[in-house]
């Protein structure tokens, strides 16, 4: 037998034996802690209630509202077309295909920022992109969109523009006028789920 074969066999066994000695690999699908902290410090994950309201009114197809409160709270009140993913089941496989949908902007919200922010941190660690937090949560939603307070007369023109927008949004969401859309749009929640990846099969 050629000596080269002995060498090759030995090399292969050494390589395979080396595999057994390797430590478990780190999870590359998660982002490094330093990067996570950096992303957390940036305020870019926050969207304002006005931005969310505008997207709902304009029926932006890329908006995906995710309500991280519990199911009872969600039933009692939720934003139009929101999906309910209670924070404690954020990682359950039932909900995993709501996150990470291509080109979708998932906006977490809860009563205030905390739950949504916690959901965001965990989702961010798992390297989901296109995720945001609605700043101020539903408390802020009520204060700014549903019950906007008029600015003082000395306020800037921008403040009045903002107030006008909020007033309009308030009418849109509460249906105060006759022309407002029906408020029972909760029954037609359409959520596009992420397509399951399918690979081509093949063989020899």
């Amino acid at each position: 037998m050629n000596k080269n074969y002995l060498f090759l066999s030995l090399l292969m066994i050494l390589l395979a034996g080396g595999l057994l000695l390797l430590p478990d690999r780190t999870n590359y699908s998660q982002i490094p802690p330093e990067d996570l902290l950096w992303d957390i410090i940036q305020p870019t994950r926050y969207v304002t209630t006005e931005q969310v309201a505008k997207m709902i009114i304009e029926q932006d197809p890329t908006l995906e509202l995710i309500d991280v409160r519990d199911a009872d709270a969600f039933k009692a009140f939720s934003l139009p077309n929101a999906v309910n993913i209670p924070l404690d089941s954020l990682l359950s496989p039932n909900y995993s295909d709501y996150l990470g949908i291509e080109d979708m902007n998932a906006v977490f919200y809860a009563n205030d920022d905390m739950l949504a922010d916690q959901a965001w941190v965990i989702a961010k660690r798992l390297n989901y992109s296109g995720i945001y937090v609605m700043k101020g949560g539903l408390n802020c939603w009520i204060k700014t969109i549903i019950q906007p307070a008029p600015p003082p007369e000395t306020a800037s023109l921008d403040a009045f523009d903002l107030y006008d927008f909020r007033k309009g949004a308030s009418i849109y969401f509460t249906g105060k006028t006759i022309t407002a859309p029906k408020s029972d749009n909760k029954s037609k929640v359409i959520v596009r789920r992420k397509k399951k990846t399918k690979a081509t099969a093949g063989g020899c």
């Binding site: 037998m1 066999s9 292969m12 066994i13 390589l15 395979a16 034996g17 595999l19 057994l20 390797l22």
Partner: peptide, 19 residues
């Protein structure tokens, strides 16, 4: 990794036996 190692051993044994 264990499966891979086992297969390497099996393969090399098979090479020798078939030889």
């Amino acid at each position: 990794r264990v499966v891979a190692f086992a297969f390497v051993v099996i393969a090399i044994a098979a090479f020798y036996v078939t030889w």
